[in-house]
Computed example of a mutant assay.
Amino acid sequence: MKVRESGMPDETYWNTFFNPGCILERFDCAGSSRGLVEFGCGYGLFTLPAARLVQGQVFALDIDPEMVATTEKKARDHGLTNIVVERRDFIKDGCGRPDASVDYAMLFNILHVEDPVGLLREVFRVLAPGGKAGVIHWRSDIETPRGPSLDIRPHPEQCRSWGQQAGLSFIRSEALACCSYHFGLLLERPIS
């Protein structure tokens, strides 16, 4: 099932809203060595830079076959062999990775799903103890040129609360000067 209000604009336009290198650096992505799951890879904007940073595999998931094909082609064209792209309904079927098998999850512009706590429980399940989850989403306190409707757009405090309901600990909020239309926060699966 496709996430509500998840249609993608033209790729060139979409790319103008983000600085992937800055975001991945601020969210400790480079520390991943066991594997990373990206929930909704889209055009692969974050997938490729993440694959260059991490030591393990990047499992890039999306339900849209066009997004999957685009990301697969980019990975091939750039010679990145540590990317596994899969067409998957991770809302309905989970991410397909074993329990506690990865140490990072990317939840970028996805927590406007109908059951955000359910998705975060899946993130908790797949993260190894000490594993981290980076969250970014469109801000609702300023005008933004894209993003879901304001009535389904989450606030940072909601994302933090949802993460805690799913068993994840809050690490920190991130002001994203490099991506001013978004807010960010980092969550973690507790070690004990």
Rank of each mutant, 00 (worst) to 15 (best):
residue 182 H to Q: 14
residue 35 G to V: 09
residue 41 C to R: 03
residue 34 R to K: 15
residue 178 C to W: 01
residue 181 Y to P: 02
residue 138 W to T: 11
residue 36 L to M: 14
residue 47 T to H: 05
residue 106 M to L: 15
residue 62 D to S: 11
residue 81 T to R: 15
residue 154 P to H: 08
residue 115 D to I: 04
residue 35 G to F: 02
residue 40 G to K: 09
residue 162 W to D: 05
residue 34 R to V: 01
residue 120 L to V: 04
residue 14 W to R: 14
residue 163 G to V: 08
residue 12 T to N: 03
residue 115 D to P: 02
residue 102 V to R: 02
residue 80 L to R: 07
residue 157 E to Y: 11
residue 8 M to E: 10
residue 150 L to W: 12
residue 135 V to R: 05
residue 107 L to W: 08
residue 134 G to M: 02
residue 180 S to C: 05
residue 19 N to R: 00
residue 158 Q to Y: 04
residue 23 I to V: 15
residue 112 H to P: 10
residue 140 S to K: 14
residue 16 T to P: 09
residue 9 P to L: 03
residue 66 E to T: 05
residue 65 P to S: 13
residue 98 P to L: 08
residue 88 R to L: 09
residue 177 A to I: 08
residue 118 G to V: 06
residue 66 E to N: 12
residue 104 Y to L: 07
residue 66 E to D: 14
residue 99 D to R: 12
residue 152 I to G: 07
residue 3 V to T: 14
residue 100 A to P: 01
residue 141 D to P: 12
residue 156 P to F: 07
residue 35 G to Y: 03
residue 130 G to D: 12
residue 158 Q to F: 01
residue 24 L to R: 00
residue 175 A to C: 05
residue 165 Q to G: 03
residue 181 Y to E: 12
residue 112 H to W: 10
residue 149 S to L: 13
residue 169 S to D: 15
residue 77 D to Y: 03
residue 127 L to F: 07
residue 24 L to P: 03
residue 81 T to F: 01
residue 1 M to F: 10
residue 35 G to L: 07
residue 111 L to G: 05
residue 67 M to T: 03
residue 182 H to K: 00
residue 30 A to K: 07
residue 24 L to C: 02
residue 184 G to H: 01
residue 82 N to W: 04
residue 87 R to G: 13
residue 157 E to F: 07
residue 164 Q to W: 05
residue 138 W to I: 06
residue 151 D to T: 14
residue 150 L to D: 11
residue 167 G to V: 07
residue 127 L to S: 08
residue 185 L to C: 01
residue 6 S to Q: 04
residue 8 M to N: 03
residue 111 L to T: 04
residue 90 F to L: 06
residue 61 L to F: 10
residue 129 P to E: 05
residue 91 I to F: 07
residue 179 C to N: 12
residue 114 E to S: 12
residue 185 L to M: 12
residue 147 G to C: 11
residue 41 C to A: 13
residue 171 I to M: 10
residue 173 S to R: 14
residue 141 D to G: 11
residue 144 T to E: 06
residue 34 R to A: 15
residue 128 A to T: 11
residue 36 L to E: 01
residue 6 S to A: 15
residue 62 D to N: 13
residue 166 A to N: 07
residue 39 F to A: 13
residue 177 A to T: 14
residue 65 P to W: 04
residue 48 L to E: 01
residue 2 K to Q: 13
residue 80 L to F: 10
residue 30 A to L: 00
residue 39 F to P: 01
residue 188 E to R: 09
